[in-house]
């Protein structure tokens, strides 16, 4: 673990923007992890279906940030291409999920996830 930490994690980038010169992979991963954690906490703690859905989107984007960061770190484009695909899929999925939420709301006139507790085994 120590060896991992001591390795230089500086992103391979040009120095045109001084402000970003000191930014390492750690910073991006920290942002990604934070966003993911916020998404998880939000998903677990909120009852509103739309909020929960937005939380999943946040987790998606957290993963996307991590992918872009790694892509930049290794200087290949696989991660970026991957994120473009993820975004496309996420857009379609968002449309589907929101439509479902609308239907669920019509049924019970509420967005509370607990209203659907009877869907148990």
């Amino acid at each position: 673990m120590d060896s991992l930490l001591t390795t230089s994690l500086t992103l391979a980038q040009d120095t045109r923007l001084e402000a970003f010169a000191g930014v390492t992979l750690y910073h991006y991963l920290f942002v990604s992890a934070t966003m993911f954690s916020l998404g998880v906490i939000g998903f677990l703690s909120r009852r509103n279906l739309i909020i929960m859905f937005l939380c999943t989107e946040m987790m998606f984007q957290a993963a996307g940030i991590a992918l872009i960061a790694f892509s930049r770190y290794w200087l290949n484009h696989t991660g970026e291409v991957f994120v473009i695909f993820v975004l496309t899929i996420a857009a379609a999925e968002a449309a589907l999920a929101l439509a479902l939420v609308v239907y669920l709301f019509r049924r019970k006139s509420t967005l509370d996830a607990d209203a659907w507790m009877e869907l148990k085994g």
Binding site: V40, W116, E118, G121
Partner: peptide, 17 residues
């Protein structure tokens, strides 16, 4: 095992997390 299928969305998410 059946009680784990509570029907509560958050419970499942909790399990996953």
């Amino acid at each position: 095992v059946r009680p784990t299928q509570s029907g509560g969305l958050q419970n499942y998410a909790m399990g996953m997390a």
